[in-house]
Design a protein around this nucleic acid. Sequence first.
DNA 1: TTCGTCATGTAATGGGTTACATGATTAC
DNA 2: GTAATCATGTAACCCATTACATGACGAA
Lengths: 198, 198
Amino acid sequence: MARSTDVLTLGILGMLAEQPLHGYQIRKRLGTDFGPFRALSFGSLYPALKRMVADGLIETVGEDSAEHVGATASRRSRIAYGLTDAGRARFEEELASAGAHAYDDDSFDLRFALFGKTDEATRLRILEGRRLRLSERLEELTATHRRQRERFDAYTAELQRHGLERVEREVEWLDQLIENERSANRGDDDTSASAGNN
Amino acid sequence: MARSTDVLTLGILGMLAEQPLHGYQIRKRLGTDFGPFRALSFGSLYPALKRMVADGLIETVGEDSAEHVGATASRRSRIAYGLTDAGRARFEEELASAGAHAYDDDSFDLRFALFGKTDEATRLRILEGRRLRLSERLEELTATHRRQRERFDAYTAELQRHGLERVEREVEWLDQLIENERSANRGDDDTSASAGNN
DNA sequence: TTCGTCATGTAATGGGTTACATGATTAC
DNA sequence: GTAATCATGTAACCCATTACATGACGAA
């Protein structure tokens, strides 16, 4: 259990869940849409696509109905991929999960970018898990900061202070998001299960 | 030209510039003092030390007796390292440089942590280089944000907005630091770096 | 026809982690 | 004397990047 699809695979699944794309397009969009893929290289992307085909998650699709997003829609030597049923199933399965791995920096950003396709309960679990993770980090940082303050010169101390502040802001951001989710939830006619604790 | 010592090597040089330490200690301190080494593994550290010995940058320092080096019968339990003359020279050389590589996230944090040993002109060059780097990133982000806004759902848009804000804050922080350096410069006649703490 | 961009792919390499294996020291 | 921690080290592996190589297409 908990196969825990890696970030790149999940990112590609997320891209292709909306529409078939070919590798070059996937790369461009991953770079702009999702957090952790600012400059993904082809040396990572193409092998990943190949592997996903082998795993039966995606397949090549004919480009007759492909929506030409950018400029020309003439036929080129390009290979568009779309999700298979297995790929769609895997994507749904992953969307519904919220294990500890989802709280890592990269993974969280991606999961958050996919919130539009994620159900509300999972959104909340992810946000709260992430918040917990960060507040633990915060505590660690505060502890070592306090414990060893005297050893640091002014610059090192400032670096630490700034790092701390960054994480604090992140936690505040999460608090805001969690609050929004909750109030949106209260606003809805709730068929949802107990939104009680935590 | 610009051999550009890697971050780990530079971090170790920085640690050992103050006092000899053994590997275990180096790891602990790198984790707390400097930015980019939160959880450096021994699998990285020890080979790095070995390589640096081979390169003549550091050497074992025996506080007390401690001969019998390679014998199978007994082994020193801990091995303290200190900078060689070459190591110290390399460190100084690196401290005085401020090439583009110093503006990367990891590298910048380390360079900043070493500001206490860095001369003022270099400090300013690094801060300004970093600022430029970030403001370029900011422009990129703003451009794609504006260009493709309509394609994003609310969550993706929020992620982008937050990412943008983070970078903006970072730039503001740098502006503040640069301002401080400048005014300190105007105020002081040249006092050199090292504040006399330990 | 040649150049720039789009597009796909492989090979070499690098920088790191995890897991493993072992020895020395300290505390009880 | 034994368990926990300190301390060093190696081997296997993971995952991504860079550099390289190829080719199609559109425009000058």
